[in-house]
């Protein structure tokens, strides 16, 4: 009797473990932070690209309209791919695109913009990557859609045509 009870307990617990591991197999093992959280924008101070003027986040995002903060760098290949798509958003009335130049060499960055055109209304520079961390970013490129000092949408990795459509919907 005792044996049977122990046996069934052992069987049931191993079945549970089996089930959990089975379920676990279907999850990905690569961690990505949650991206669909709506948060207030972080406070930060940043130098404006190619100058010594320092601005803080309140000054940068003071208007009521939409902002698109794009983290980019001249050494990042996906940024190059993403660039024409950003340019398509350049003329949106309700939207200001702000670039955050991530850990870049200023000469290369300028060359990059000269070659591909600049979609940015304002470029901030993030020499050591700290501002990107304030935003919770962990790679380049990343893009944040901001309204009323709140992040309403975050894109990890390069933007594509679908994200453009989505962003346009948000703005309207």
């Amino acid at each position: 009797m005792k044996t049977k009870i122990f046996f069934s307990v052992a069987i049931i617990s191993s079945l549970i473990i089996f089930f959990v591991l089975f379920k676990g197999l279907q999850n990905t093992n690569i961690y990505t932070p949650q991206v669909d959280v709506k948060k207030d924008i972080p406070y930060f101070e940043a130098k404006i690209f190619d100058s010594d003027i320092v601005k803080n986040s309140n000054e940068i995002f003071q208007k009521e309209n939409f902002y698109l903060l794009n983290i980019w760098s001249s050494w990042c290949a996906p940024c190059r791919y993403e660039h024409p798509i950003l340019l398509k958003l350049k003329d949106q009335v309700n939207l200001e695109i702000i670039g955050l130049n991530y850990k870049d060499n200023i000469i290369n960055a300028k060359k990059f913009l000269k070659e591909l055109n600049s979609p940015y209304r304002l470029i901030l520079s993030d020499e050591n990557g700290i501002i990107a961390i304030e935003w919770g970013a962990y790679g380049v490129p990343e893009t944040f859609l901001i309204h009323n000092k709140r992040i309403i949408k975050r894109y990890v990795g390069p933007l594509n045509m679908n994200s453009i459509i989505e962003i346009k919907k948000f703005i309207e």
């Binding site: 850990k103 050591n128 990557g129 700290i130 990107a132 961390i133 962990y138 790679g139 380049v140």
Partner: peptide, 13 residues
């Protein structure tokens, strides 16, 4: 990685 280096700077800051 770039990310790790930035975090290191952030931590010392």
């Amino acid at each position: 990685s770039e990310f790790a280096n930035s975090i290191k700077i952030l931590v010392s800051k």
